[in-house]
Design a protein around this nucleic acid. Structure first.
Length: 161
DNA sequence: TTGAATCACATAT
DNA sequence: ATATGTGATTCAA
């Protein structure tokens, strides 16, 4: 069963982004998150399982600053070994903290810091896998959705660069 | 600031 | 199958 969750971001975050309306969506298959992202319009929702209802609450709470972890949301990755390893590592970065591209590479015993950025670009689960917590050694780095969103998420988590 | 290093991937041949 | 180009980088002149 495929379910779709769609959440309109609260005013608080939108103000920081300067974007007028922004929705975050997540797609679950059998209660497991397989895809997420941002859109400028609401997606038609299909929510039936307990897991999806729970995920919806967790994400809504996160965006309003009431929740700091996504432990309960299971996810599945279907990517290369390297990319998967990087994303798993990124999923471990605690709320409100950041790591650099170089540090993430090192945690995988690799020096492919530039390839880390490539792996993050392929992240199918933004927010749930918090690639916004990976920044450059000097400077914020990039964000494939929209850099303003990365800034807003870090701001929400109270991170100062 | 510039240039070299570094490596997974996508794309082209 | 092999070659080339491209980064959401980093470090040292």
């Amino acid at each position: 069963m495929r379910e779709v969750i769609s959440i309109e971001l609260p005013e608080k975050i939108l103000t920081k982004t300067g974007i007028e309306t922004l929705w975050f969506y997540t797609i679950l298959e059998k209660g497991i998150a397989v895809k997420s992202g941002f859109t400028d319009g609401c997606l038609e929702e299909i929510i039936e399982s307990e897991k999806a209802i729970q995920a919806r609450k967790i994400l809504t709470d996160y965006f309003s600053g009431k929740r700091t972890s996504f432990e309960e949301i299971d996810f599945k990755l279907d990517l290369s070994k390297f990319t998967t390893a990087i994303l798993i590592e990124v999923a471990r970065i605690p709320y409100g903290t950041v790591a650099t591209y170089g540090e993430i590479a090192a945690r995988i015993q690799s020096r492919a810091y530039r390839a880390v950025g490539q792996a993050l670009k392929r992240n199918p689960l933004p927010v749930i896998i918090p690639c916004h917590r990976v920044v450059g050694k000097s400077g914020i780095g990039g964000y494939s959705s929209d850099l303003r969103i990365k800034t807003a998420l870090l701001d929400l988590e109270g991170v100062l660069l």
